[in-house]
Simulated assay, not measured.
Amino acid sequence: MNKLNKIALVTGASRGLGKNMAINLAKKGIDVLFTYQSKEEDAIETAKEIEKYGTRTAFLQLDIQNTSSFKQFFERLETCLRDKFQTNHIDFLINNAGTGTYATFQGTTEDQFDSMFNIHIKGVYFLSQSAIEIMNNEGAIINISSGLTRFCTEGYAAYAAAKGAVEILTKYQAAELGFRGIRSNVVAPGPIETDFGGGIVRDNKDLNQIIASQTALGRVGLPSDIGSVVTFLCTDEAKWINAQRIEVSGGYYL
């Protein structure tokens, strides 16, 4: 096994978009250390799929909105890096972990608002802050946002506002970390067939067809459409892409 493989830390990769990102990274020969929140059995299955590509992998439990747990998380992470990967550094951070909440602007409770901002901006902000301490120079951060920062769909005001904050954070990361050669970019998926929002895009045939009809390429997005772009941003081919928001939506709602 090549011990010089670069290493990516992917949050929330036991299923959905994160899982596809992890698998695509492995296909490119990048070792993957990923997190899961509660379903360890899903993490085990993801690890098995990653290992099929001959790369090393490991997973750790993390609740992204519990920032008080980050110190202990990074202690476990550093032990894992040393024992499993024979290093104490990572090369890439993909801030993917998250969930949505459906509530109109007027109907959003303070608890719902706090949850969205704790998960999608506070957690990302402080996890990235700690990860930078163990990231190699010439590394990269990829923050996952949403097409909902460009177009509006009723019921996602708090979620989209938090993602908008992530997009601004990305520019500041790029500006302040450039001296180390660390790039920071945003990938913003459009509607994707996952279990997000209870799987409504994937499982509601009528909605799926409506979205497809409003998409220039004529279909709804798949997880593989996103994972490949995230992986590209971790390669040398993307070395001059920095501080950019890349929407991956097939031309939805133009």
Score class of each variant (00 low, 15 high):
Ser130Gln: 15
Phe70His: 10
Ile90Glu: 00
Asp42Lys: 15
Phe105Cys: 11
Tyr253Val: 01
Arg180Gly: 14
Ala216Pro: 03
Glu154Ile: 13
Ala13Arg: 02
Gly54Phe: 08
Gln86Leu: 13
Asn208Gln: 15
Gly190Trp: 01
Phe74Gly: 00
Asn242Ala: 05
Thr79Leu: 13
Asn118Gln: 15
Ile182Gly: 05
Leu9Ser: 02
Cys234Ile: 09
Thr101Met: 12
Cys80Pro: 02
Glu138Gln: 14
Gly107Thr: 14
Met135Trp: 01
Cys234Met: 10
Tyr159Ile: 02
Ser38Cys: 02
Glu75Leu: 12
Cys80Ala: 14
Glu49Asn: 12
Phe34Gly: 03
Ile226Asp: 01
Gly54Pro: 05
Gly54Cys: 11
Gly197Met: 04
Gln112Arg: 06
Ile144Gln: 08
Gly250Lys: 10
Met116Arg: 06
Thr79Gln: 15
Leu254Val: 11
Glu167Tyr: 07
Ile182Asp: 00
Thr153Val: 15
Ile200Phe: 07
Glu78Ala: 04
Leu17Glu: 01
Ile64His: 07
Phe73Ala: 06
Asn24Gly: 06
Glu75Gly: 06
Asn24Lys: 13
Ser184Gln: 03
Ser146Trp: 03
His120Cys: 04
His89Tyr: 12
Ala58His: 08
Met135Cys: 09
Glu40Pro: 02
Ala131Thr: 07
Phe126Leu: 14
Asp63Lys: 15
Asn136Thr: 12
Leu127Ser: 00
Arg82Ser: 15
Gln129Thr: 07
Gln106Asp: 13
Glu167Gly: 04
Glu176Pro: 06
